[in-house]
Design a protein around this nucleic acid. Structure first.
Lengths: 151, 151
DNA sequence: ATCCGGTTGTTAGCATACTAACATTATCGA
DNA sequence: TCGATAATGTTAGTATGCTAACAACCGGAT
């Protein structure tokens, strides 16, 4: 019987930190972020790129709506949008139909860069998944999606 | 031909944010953290639990060493250790052999809780992986480890 | 023995990510 | 129409996670 067997009947599973999904998710996220930041094509963080790409996809929308579409709470999306506005990548105008809202859209310069930003994002994904074979990449993304879509 | 086909010869792969590994890793991490925080067994964050479990595993060590063993840079591990000391979970003493170092160890009370902390960690991992079948869980952890272990 | 490079821990600054509380504005129901 | 409810955006506070700079200290090489 393997000394690392964690399925022995009647015995409690051993807690090995390096085998826990939360710990491994943190490591994988760290590696992805490092790959992203080491590819200096744009002065963007992964989160900022996600916001820009989503805004390009869905078009003009409110700040909270963009937050929901990118899985950022209201406090986080505010900071992200503030920094994107400061860089001139996103512009705003008041919503004429709802005085609570500010509508966000990409600046013309950003609009023109969208294709390059997409290409950059694909490169990052390829580098991140490089340790896996093509079949493994497909499987991994499918399972990761199952873990993310719940709730 | 499928309209979402991203492998058509001669065409550039489409950039779909929801299919990018970085975005999905962020979603999965968010879900894991939410599961963790909604299980109020201990007043700990995932990072703090990792530090405690690792310290229990490797025994008394320096702050930077614990950081390396838990994938936290020197600034991050400092904050984590400060908070664990403030809660009385970790105690320190100067290293008699190296005046730069402070040696960390678990407080006796924490030592006594380690088995419960392990059990709690296993519950969190089970809940996080619940959307997958047993076979999928094994595969997912194997691939996630491959993505994390790369230098 | 001294100098030099490396290690340890601290600090400051920035960027997510979360909760909670708040004022303002919309909307729906009675 | 009015009153309760909900949505929007802001602010404050806390906790990672990163870089960069710094002082103090250790070890080895000359």
């Amino acid at each position: 019987m393997n000394q690392n067997d964690d399925t022995t009947v009647g015995e409690r599973a051993a807690y090995v930190l390096d085998d826990q999904v939360g710990f491994l998710l943190r490591l994988a996220s760290q590696r992805h972020t490092a790959i992203f930041q080491d590819s200096p094509a744009f002065d963007l963080t992964p989160t900022q790129l996600a916001a820009i790409v989503r805004l390009a996809q869905i078009g003009e929308c409110s700040q909270n709506e963009l937050g929901r579409q990118t899985a950022m709470d209201v406090a986080t999306i505010k900071g992200v949008v503030d920094r994107l506005r400061q860089k001139g990548l996103v512009v705003t105008r008041p919503d004429p139909l709802d005085r609570r809202r500010t509508l966000l859209s990409l600046s013309p310069g950003t609009e023109a860069m969208i294709a390059d930003i997409h290409e950059f994002g694909l490169q990052i994904s390829r580098k991140t998944l490089a340790p896996l074979t093509a079949a493994e990449r497909t499987t991994f993304l499918r399972l990761l999606r199952k873990l993310s879509e719940v709730g």
